[in-house]
Design a protein around this nucleic acid. Structure first.
Length: 643
RNA sequence: GGACCGGUAGCUCAGCUGGAUAGAGCAGCUGCCUUCUAAGCAGCAGGCCAUUGGUUCGAAUCCAAUCCGGUUCACCA
């Protein structure tokens, strides 16, 4: 049990004993003691005064006395300042913690809790390469999975690949029209990029063709439209010319957008893509073959990127296998009276009682929509694994979708409903706004990785501290630092906040960054290298008998908090909690390392004042290195032995 | 318009389950390599915690209203 939990429990018992009042552990507020006061942890006594009917100072005294008397091995002393009871934790408590923990490779890990959770993340489209937004998703999904594991959960990392649909046909069509049979092998272009290039090509042609139609429409020529669509476009055209709309830029913009959308749909190339999609759905052998070929190129490309980033999955789902799944759910919903059919044969659910809207679950023509598939897939996942919880790592623009998904499954009384949770994260934006693939303003993941690794290489070379590294070791080190910097950059921010990335400013290697923490770890390792492995192993049997200097105590304390930090990160689904902690720990060790008095390093390990001190500091150094390593591992970041 | 999310130093962010004088990093300025690695350490400067009101011993933190920014409310996925 952590120190803080022990204190809370002791305090709750003390209040019950002293004042015969029921008081739970959750009601006790414990903070770290401010540096200007004596002690390590502080109990806020104000909440107890209504039971004690004494002044806060007197209540604090009474409580402090009780704790010292009844928990002497925990609380060695105390002082009271106003309503704050500052506790000095017994020296031996800290000493026994370092002794017991310093050789643990994975500090803070919890034993299995018997619960199973699926984390779905990444979920890429197979029509273009990964970009910066996907990186945040991948890093978050991977990290939260590792954090859940460390907290005792069994985790299934799942990836639902969006491998079919109109966007895939766009790339396929453009390739058919313009590629002259080019392949990744023939061009030397990475598969996902090659396919992405044809997606862009498609969009370029589409834009050109749409321009013509739009300018026709704006001139009052509606030859490309007929029937209902013609009526609609004429109506929009007329609306646009009304003076009150002309005066309202926002409304005019919306109308123009709709004209644009309708026109895009009418282009020849879009019509061709739609035909291709129908052929795909009908199982046309030629289209299916092309689809398989091009998807395999993309998978090779993704595989390379995932591997480089250290991202992995336990289970792959493919939308081409799941997109028809939801239809029996629709039947079920109709039978249970949860859904209803409209005259045009479309199927809906009424969620207005829950503060939401009516939601379509099946089109009039019997084809499914996004939510239909997701309902089916949720049931499939549950049938496959019977997990207690199913976590979806998806951007916050889909908050509404997941609210609806969970609600529908609840109304259907489905077993999977209770476990559905949305780990919603904010989008990564550029200084000028959102990344848009149509407008070519995306930051490509592979480019970004290459750039970070090369920045790391340049910087490493400038510092010139890696003499004796082989080519291969150097290459590995640059990967570790560059990718570490990038992962840390994207994970240090609270997931639910959107973040702005400026490609003009490269990601820092100093300060609150991955490399700072990696560096701190490497430096601890260089301290440990001063000693033989036999010396280090022998520390396990060493019996402590020495007082602690302030920063020795502080470091042990922070290390000891790791278990609690792990729990917090899990509860909040936030790797940033771990990132902040790892930084604090590294920073504190650096201060410890560099602390100088009268020209002497007062916390020197090698040149410690006594053998006891040397052994204590060695244990502290080992403990800190292990905790840093483990914390970074939970973020998916490796730490080097030397850098 | 409804729902949800955000607004803390010049910039990027911690702190938000109420607790002592609001913290980091970057950028700016000072110092510190004969040291177990200076990707570091120590310091200076920088704040009406969006605004107003409320709750109470105590509010950046909780509540209400307002202002600003974002997302969403598709027979797209």
């Amino acid at each position: 049990m952590s120190v803080v939990s022990s204190i809370k429990q002791a305090a709750a018992e003390a209040v019950q004993a002293l004042y015969q009042q029921p008081f739970t552990v959750a009601d006790v507020s414990v903070n770290t003691t401010k540096p200007e006061f004596e002690g390590e942890y502080t109990i806020v006594v104000f909440p107890f005064t209504k039971f004690s009917r004494l002044k806060p100072e007197e209540t604090g005294q009474a409580l402090g006395n009780y704790l010292v008397q009844h928990y002497p091995s925990l609380v060695a002393g105390f002082n009271v300042v106003k309503g704050f009871l500052n506790l000095s934790i017994h020296r031996d408590y800290w000493l026994s913690y370092v002794k017991e923990a310093h050789q643990q490779a994975t500090p803070g890990r919890k034993p299995s809790n018997g619960k199973k959770v699926m984390v779905e993340y990444s979920s890429p489209n197979t029509n273009k390469p990964l970009h910066l937004g996907h990186l945040r998703n991948n890093f978050l999904g991977y990290s939260i999975s590792e954090i859940l594991k460390a907290n005792g959960y069994e985790v299934i990392k799942a990836n639902l690949v969006n491998d079919r649909g109109i966007h895939i046909c766009k790339s396929m069509l453009a390739w058919q029209l313009f590629a002259h049979g080019d392949t990744p092998q023939s061009t030397g272009v990475k598969g996902d990029h090659l396919v992405g290039d044809y997606y862009v090509r498609f969009e370029t042609i589409l834009r050109e063709q749409a321009e013509t139609i739009i300018s026709d429409v704006l001139e009052g020529n509606f030859k490309d439209f007929e029937g209902e669509e013609k009526e609609r476009i004429i109506k929009l055209h007329n609306l646009l010319h009304k003076p009150e709309i002309q005066a309202d830029a926002e409304k005019a913009g919306k109308i123009k957008d709709e004209i644009k959308e309708l026109s895009r749909n009418k282009t020849e190339i879009m019509q061709q893509a739609k035909i291709m999609l129908q052929q795909w759905e009908a199982g046309n052998p030629e289209v299916r073959a092309l689809w398989q070929t091009m998807n395999s190129w993309v998978y090779e490309g993704f595989e390379e990127t995932y591997k480089r980033l250290g991202i992995d999955f336990d289970k792959m789902y493919f939308e081409s296998n799941t997109y028809l799944l939801g239809k029996d759910v629709v039947e079920e919903g109709l039978q249970k009276g949860v859904f209803f059919r409209k005259p045009d044969n479309s199927v809906w659910i009424d969620l207005t009682a829950d503060g939401l809207d009516e939601k379509l679950v099946l089109r009039g023509d019997g084809t499914s929509v996004y939510i239909t598939q997701d309902l089916g897939t949720a049931k499939l996942k549950y049938a496959d694994f019977h997990m207690d919880q199913s976590l979806y790592v998806v951007a916050d623009e889909q908050n509404y979708h997941f609210k609806v998904l969970r609600l529908i499954l609840q109304k259907l009384g489905d077993a999977s409903a209770g476990g559905i949770e949305h780990l919603s994260y904010g989008m990564v934006e550029l200084p000028h706004g959102r990344m848009k693939s149509r407008e070519g303003t995306v930051v490509d993941a592979d480019d970004m990785i290459a750039e970070m690794v090369s920045t790391a290489a340049t910087h490493t070379e400038e510092l010139g501290k890696v003499k004796g590294f082989s080519e291969e070791e150097l290459r590995e080190l640059h990967e570790t630092i560059g990718i570490g910097a990038m992962k840390f950059f994207l994970l240090k921010v609270d997931p639910k906040k959107r973040m702005i990335f400026n490609p003009e400013e490269s990601i820092d290697l100093h300060g609150f960054t991955g490399p700072f923490i990696q560096y701190s770890h490497a430096r601890i390792k260089s301290i440990l290298r001063e000693f033989s492995t036999a010396d280090l192993a022998a520390l396990a049997d060493y019996t402590h008998n020495e007082d602690l200097l302030p920063m020795e105590k502080e470091l042990i304390m922070i290390n000891e908090q790791f278990g609690t930090v792990l729990e917090d990160a899990q509860k909040e689904w936030s790797p940033s909690v771990i990132a902040n902690y790892a930084f604090l720990l590294a920073q504190t060790f650096n201060s410890f390392y560099a602390k100088k008095e009268n020209g002497k390093y007062i916390y020197s390990v090698r040149d410690a004042e006594t053998d006891h001190k040397r052994k204590l500091r060695l244990q502290i150094a080992m403990l800190t290195a292990n905790t840093i390593k483990e914390a970074m591992k939970l973020l998916g970041i490796q730490v080097p032995e030397r850098m």
